[in-house]
Amino acid sequence: MTDAPLAPPRRLAALLSRRPAAGRARSGALHRFLRHRLAVAGLAAIALMLLACWLGPLLIPYDQLFIDIRHRFAGPFAGPHVFGTDQLGRDLLVRLLMAGRISLTIGFAAMALSTAVGTAIGLVAGYRGGLVGAALMRCVDAVLCFPSVFLLLALAAFIRPNVVTITLIIAATGWMEVARVVQGQIRTLKARDFTLAAELMGASGFYVMTNELLRNAVGPIIVAATLTVARAILAEAYVSFLGYGIQAPVASWGNMLNNAQQYLGSAPWLAIFPGLMITVAVASFNFVGDGLRDALDARVEL
């Protein structure tokens, strides 16, 4: 506080971060992202994981449901089953990759849904403001008041679990963050004169929201969406681990962990590998989200 009266004004920050051209601004964002090592590593891990889950099962000569009682509990890194086998002798690697297809699909689909819903609600709440905005945001607060794990479980208990319903449930508990981010962003943007300029041209609310405001909020939405993927993967793991999610024999990382509990002492790899996949996936999306946040930080535009 001693230095408070001497703190350089914001003008200086503007002075120092002035970017001359659009091309520069964009490559600037890419440049900033690439400087974020963890984010780049996360992006590589995600790409690798997607590729493995897509191609891997086609290359491995085992089916995820093929039971081979004679080779049950085969240890990893020995013999033909690279990651070993489970209590029914099913190949763990192919199950991990097939489970990855499910988990990642749910993650991305839930992200798409909750981002769409959250963006729409945040956009309307931020632009309309007043009573409409207040009512919408109180709804957001209300949903946020529920502990989301219990909400997930309560919903899951009533609905027949499959990929579609699990995705819907996760999306239903995950759109609020996006709505908040978007609402805050839109409120600031709405105060800028270009919004009034559009209204004075006779633009409808829909036009102003979609053409003027939304495109300025893309950065924060992308960041929020990325973090939502991580959240959704984690949520799917919770639900499946607790037995309300994807049901056996179909594998997901969550129900594989659940299954591994009984053999934790004798066959720890059954828990370690799915746990590792979840950790790596969630951490990677979080790192990418952080990197994007730094890279897309609004300093570029003035």
Partner: peptide, 19 residues
């Protein structure tokens, strides 16, 4: 609207930076 228009004070906030 086409008959009445406005010019703003702040040349930074009155133009949409993404257009």
């Amino acid at each position: 609207r086409p008959r009445m228009q406005m010019i703003f004070q702040d040349p930074f906030s009155s133009l949409n930076p993404r257009m």
